[in-house]
Design a protein around this nucleic acid. Structure first.
Length: 139
DNA sequence: GCCAACGTTGGC
DNA sequence: GCCAACGTTGGC
């Protein structure tokens, strides 16, 4: 069971909008980067990802779950791109911002810090657990 | 608003 | 196939 992190500018697609979609979920479209595409295609139904707000906020705000595995991104005008569908699972009781992540030596190794431009990235089990704990969630 | 990091493009 | 130039992203 792998864990992931997906980034979005709140102005483009926010956690609040994701929550509003409820059980229907929403396609995670618009990824135009090969490494991110590789990660999208590796995602399995039922796997979970942190929802990260980039830009002004810079914080992990919630958890989403994959309900549909990679399929063609119809918003792509050309090229072979993929997207998955995700649903909001729950918010972090306390959002974990980038400053807090960088301040923790165990989290400072996260892809989020190492390669901040990658929009879909893997998260290790240890990182997942720690962020959940810091965010006030069980497991 | 600036700048660093990264990815892509295009000339050679 | 290499590398410079350019564009984009995202943190500060």
């Amino acid at each position: 069971m792998a864990y992931w992190l997906m980034k979005s500018e709140p102005e483009t697609w926010s956690w609040a909008q994701q929550v509003k979609k409820g059980a229907k979920g929403e396609p995670w479209s618009g990824v135009r980067n090969y490494q991110a595409r590789l990660n999208l295609r590796a995602m399995k139904k039922g796997e979970r990802a942190f929802f990260y707000h980039s830009g002004e906020e810079r914080a992990i705000v919630g958890i989403v779950e994959v309900i549909k595995e990679a399929y063609p991104d119809h918003t792509a005008e050309k090229g072979d791109w993929s997207m998955v569908d995700v649903i909001a699972v729950e918010p972090l009781q306390k959002p974990i911002d980038l400053t807090a992540i960088k301040a923790d030596e165990k989290l400072a190794q996260m892809m989020l810090v190492k390669n901040s431009r990658l929009s879909v990235q893997p998260v290790t089990d240890a990182e997942w657990k720690l962020v959940c704990k810091m965010g006030g969630l069980k497991i």
